[in-house]
Amino acid sequence: MRLSPVFLLSATDVSHFPTKAKTFDVPEIAFLGRSNVGKSSLINSLIGSKEAHVSSTPGRTRAINFFALHEGAGEKKKIRPTLIFADLPGYGYAKISRSISSEWPTFIEPYLANRETLALCICLVDTNIPPQPNDTQLITYLKQSQRPYLVVGTKSDRISGNVLSKSIAALKREHEVDEILPISAKTDAGIKTLWSRLMAVAED
């Protein structure tokens, strides 16, 4: 199914979050991960658009950017969205990690803790580097808060075969998860599988 994206808004405060009247109370998918892990590139690959801005400077996304995904296009586009994507600010980039950390409690944690329409968190981890403690912290937080999540391994096109398998195994072990879906926004590897998981959420 092809979905047409519409940018809704950028939220830097809880009061900015889209209301049920605007989103028709449809499921939201949140994309979370370290700065420069490839969140915006993945979103653009999923929706076949450049709606999510990809910055050359890691950590530039300082708001939650919401996108509504509609069935159809143009005049045939359905008014009620099928899904809402939420692109969250990255974390862990040395030059701005302190300022990002200071912003997380003000509107990110309330979003993750209290957002009723949040149906699934996509946690992005980089398959090209060793497991990162702040990724583990995020995944642990989602487990403790009983938020549904899926761990996705980005940039899988840069390594292959046995090296990729070892990387995925290390990430599973360190983050204590049973599944990590390797994907590549560059080659679209794993994108179809990820889409099927997202559409299952929409259908629920």
Rank of each mutant, 00 (worst) to 15 (best):
R158I: 08
D25E: 12
N44H: 03
E71L: 04
L138C: 08
E116W: 01
L83E: 05
V152R: 14
A63G: 07
S41L: 14
A169I: 10
P5R: 10
K77G: 05
P18N: 08
A21M: 13
K172G: 10
P18C: 08
P18V: 08
G92R: 10
I84N: 02
V26R: 15
T61Y: 08
Q137H: 04
G59F: 00
A63R: 12
I159N: 08
F107R: 05
G33P: 08
R60G: 11
N134P: 03
W104P: 02
A202P: 01
Q132Y: 09
H70C: 05
T193Y: 03
D87L: 12
Y93N: 07
S101D: 14
L8W: 07
P18H: 07
L118V: 05
R98G: 07
H53S: 06
N36D: 08
I183D: 01
D126H: 14
L9F: 06
R80D: 00
P18R: 10
K155G: 00
A11G: 05
I43A: 07
T193C: 01
K77F: 00
T19Q: 15
T140H: 12
E51G: 06
E116A: 12
L138K: 04
K155D: 00
L138T: 13
Y93I: 04
S56L: 02
S55G: 02
I180M: 13
S102I: 01
K20F: 10
F85R: 03
H175M: 09
P81T: 02
A73C: 05
A68H: 02
G74A: 13
A21G: 01
E174D: 15
L198N: 13
M1I: 11
